[in-house]
Design a protein around this nucleic acid. Structure first.
Lengths: 181, 181
DNA sequence: TAGGCCATGTAACCGGTTACATGATTAG
DNA sequence: CTAATCATGTAACCGGTTACATGGCCTA
C-alpha cells in the first residue's frame, strides 16, 4: 500500500499528525500493512492537502512544538472508498528468512539455528502483540484482520517449531572446506 | 530481497540467462520471495559481472536470439554465503486485501464479496501450485519452504472461508447515502 | 547528562517498475 | 494472421528510505 492510501485510511479513523501517522504505521494496527517513514508521510500529507482530500488545523502547545492535525474531508473519504473498491492488488510477501532456509545447506549450522531462534522469537512477539491488540479493540473490521493475523502467525509459528530440527539437519551440508580464512 | 541476492541465489542452483532468472522469480520456486523485472535483472547482472561474482558465456542459437548464460563464480558463492549469514531482515508483508477487509464497512458489500471470492481463488491457486511444486521437487531446502508455504496458505484459506460471512455482514454498514451518482 | 519522546520538514540518493525498441520462430 | 515465447537491453520515471537540520521537555 502506498503512503497516499495509508494516510487516508488512518485519517478515516481519526484525526492525526504526521508524527502519529508514522507511529500508527509502525506499531499500531496498520503496522500489518506498512512501515512508513517521515520522508514518505510529510510530502504525502502536503499533496493530499493540495488535492483537498484532507484539511489541517495547527495546534499550539506549551513547551512542545506546534502540531499540525490533519483530518479527512468528504472528498478524501470518497477517494478512499474508490481506492478500496478497486480489485485489491495481490499480496506482497518478502522473506529473507525463507531464503536462508531454502539455501540452508550453504550456511553454517550455527547461523541457521540463530536465524530460526530469532524467527521464533519474532513470530511469538508478533502473535502476542496481535492478541493484545485484539483484546483492546472493538472495531469489527480491525478484529477481522487481527484474527486473520493471529491464525496465520500461529500456523507459521507451529510450522517453524515443528520443523526446526529438520532444517538444522540440512544446514551446512553443502559447505565447502572453509576452514582457514 | 534485492535483485542482487536473487540473481546469486538462482545462479547458485544453476546457470541461467537474464530471461530465465526473471521467469524463475515469477513462476518458479523463487516467486515466493520476489517478482523481478528485466529492468532490475539485466543491470544487476552487468554489475555482478563487473564485480566478478558471476561469469558469462554467449551461446549462439539458430533461429533464436543469442543467449548470455550466466554462472556463479567462487567469489559469488562466497558473497552469497555472507549475505545469508547476516541476521535476516524481518519479513515484509503488504496486503491490499486486508486493508479492504479492515475498512469493509466503507465499501459496497458487492465489492467486498468480489474481493473475498478473488482472494479465495488466488489462495487456492497458489496452494495448488505449491503442492505441485512440492511433488516435483527433491531439494531439501526448497521442500522445507514449500511445506511452510503450504501450511501458511492453508491456514489463510481456512480463515477466509470460515469468516467470509462475518465480513459480508460488516460490509457497507458505514456507507453514506450514496445512491445517485 | 545522555537518551528518548514529541514534532516538523528537506535533500540526496537508490532500487525498482513501466514502457519502449528490436526481431525471429512457433503454435493456435 | 495473431499471439505467445524466446531474448536482450535502455531510459524515464517514481515511490520511498536515509540522513540531516532543529529544538525543547522529561526521565533515568
Amino acid at each position: 500500500m502506498n503512503a497516499h492510501t495509508l494516510c487516508l485510511a488512518i485519517l478515516n479513523f481519526r484525526d492525526a499528525t504526521g508524527y502519529e501517522i508514522r507511529k500508527l504505521s509502525i506499531d499500531g494496527n496498520f503496522s500489518y500493512f506498512v512501515d512508513a517513514s517521515y520522508g514518505a508521510i510529510y510530502p504525502t500529507l502536503k499533496r493530499l492537502l493540495d488535492e483537498g482530500l484532507v484539511g489541517v488545523r495547527t495546534e499550539q502547545q506549551a513547551g512542545k512544538p506546534a502540531r499540525k492535525v490533519y483530518s479527512i474531508t468528504p472528498a478524501g473519504r470518497q477517494a478512499l472508498c474508490e481506492t478500496l473498491s478497486e480489485p485489491p492488488a495481490p499480496d506482497i510477501f518478502k522473506s529473507q528468512f525463507l531464503l536462508v532456509a531454502m539455501l540452508a545447506e550453504h550456511v553454517e549450522p550455527a547461523c541457521v539455528e540463530r536465524a530460526v531462534a530469532a524467527r521464533i522469537a519474532e513470530l511469538q512477539g508478533r502473535l502476542d502483540a496481535l492478541h493484545q491488540a485484539r483484546a483492546k479493540c472493538d472495531h469489527e473490521g480491525s478484529n477481522w484482520i487481527l484474527d486473520y493475523g493471529i491464525a496465520v502467525h500461529a500456523a507459521s509459528l507451529d510450522y517453524v517449531k515443528a520443523n526446526r530440527s529438520a532444517l538444522s539437519r540440512i544446514a551446512g551440508s553443502a559447505l565447502p572446506a572453509q576452514a582457514a580464512e
